[in-house]
Structure formats: structure tokens, C-alpha cells
Amino acid sequence: MALFTESADVSVRPAQPEDVEAVTDVQLAAWRLSHDGVLGEQVMDSLDVPRMREQWAAAITAPPGPGFAVFVACNRADVVGFAAVGPGQLVALEVLPSEQRSGHGSRLLSAAVDRIRSDGAQEFSTWVLDEDPAREQFLAGAGLGPDGRRRSLATGVRDVTESRWSATL
């Protein structure tokens, strides 16, 4: 006998104010998995979680301008990932470690690209922290590649470097 539910098992939708805590939790869990070695335990432990929640609340409820949006990936009713976009840019894309390699990242990237394209962009970019081979593999599989631009970020404990990846739409 088949079991039917009122909603899709997996989906992507625009983020709502009630998603703020889940988005922050996803970011923290994903960063611990993929960035702990680069950022270091001291940086991870010093993250201001209440401030992060405030920033996500603002991004979701009062985006800073046209072209900004936050999407969430859901497994049934549970938020398991998110993507944030700005004009021509994928600002963030994270999925809970336990839900990675389940298609959520690809669905989020598709929603992000659709939004960026609908806003008139002809290319888009994102920044990738050095020493994140899983993210590089994911982005390369989606048709993005490093475009030679790099930047350094000061974390207050150590500087880290990111490379910009881009693609034409």
C-alpha cells in the first residue's frame, strides 16, 4: 500500500520568517563539517549565533534590495538546506551534513540560478573558501569554474583565502 502525503517529500521554496533558526542551524552544522579545518575551532567557537540569526532574519524579511532572496530546501516539512542570492551572485549555499548528496544542493542551486537569471543577469559567481574540495567538485559539476579572482578575509584569528567561481547563464 502506498503512503501519500500532502506535500512533496523534497522541495525548495522561498524562506519564511519561521525558517531563521533552521537556516542558522544548517549554516553552523555545514560550516563545522566543511570549514572547521580551514577556519579553525577558535573561529567556529567564536561565531556570534544570535547575530547570525538577526542577519538571516533581515535577509529573509527585509532584503537589502532587488535581486536578493533566500531559499530553503525541505525534506518533508524540515528545512535541510538554504541558498542566498544577490544580484548576479550566489552568496551562500549550505545543506545539513546528514542530508548532503541527496539532491538538495542541486535543487537549491537551480532555484538560485533561476532567480539570478530572472533578474536579468547573464553570468553569476560565488566565492569558495580554499581547501573545500567537496564544494569545488559540486560547483564544477554544475558548470562553474574558477575565474582567477581571489580574496583574503580576516577572521580575527587567522586570514583565509577564497577563490571566485563563475559561469555564464
Rank of each mutant, 00 (worst) to 15 (best):
R149P: 01
P146K: 12
W31L: 13
V38I: 15
T5V: 05
D132V: 12
I60H: 03
D130A: 10
Q27H: 15
G81W: 04
A57W: 05
E94D: 15
L3I: 11
A69M: 07
S11Q: 02
F4W: 10
L39F: 09
V20Q: 02
H35R: 13
V128I: 15
S118D: 08
W127S: 00
A8E: 11
F71G: 00
Q100C: 09
P14G: 03
S118W: 02
P87T: 09
V79L: 04
S163C: 12
V157T: 09
A15E: 03
G120N: 04
H35N: 10
P87H: 11
V113L: 13
G120S: 05
T24Y: 08
P133H: 09
Q122Y: 08
A29E: 14
G156M: 08
E162C: 07
G67F: 01
G148T: 00
D45S: 14
T24L: 05
H35K: 13
G67K: 03
L153V: 13
T161G: 07
L3P: 04
P87W: 08
Q122E: 15
C74M: 02
D130R: 13
A142S: 11
A62D: 14
T5P: 01
T126N: 05
A92R: 07
Q27K: 13
E131A: 11
E123M: 10
L139N: 01
Q16M: 14
V38R: 10
R117V: 06
R51C: 10
T161K: 12
G67I: 01
A22S: 08
D132R: 12
V23T: 08
T61N: 09
V70R: 06
P63C: 09
M44Q: 07
R164K: 11
R76K: 14
V128W: 04
R135Y: 03
A62M: 10
G141I: 08
M52C: 09
A142L: 03
P133V: 06
S11H: 00
S166G: 08
S34L: 11
L3S: 15
G103L: 01
L28Q: 14
Q55F: 08
E136Q: 12
G120T: 02
R149G: 05
R115W: 11
L108E: 01
R164A: 08
V157C: 02
F82D: 00
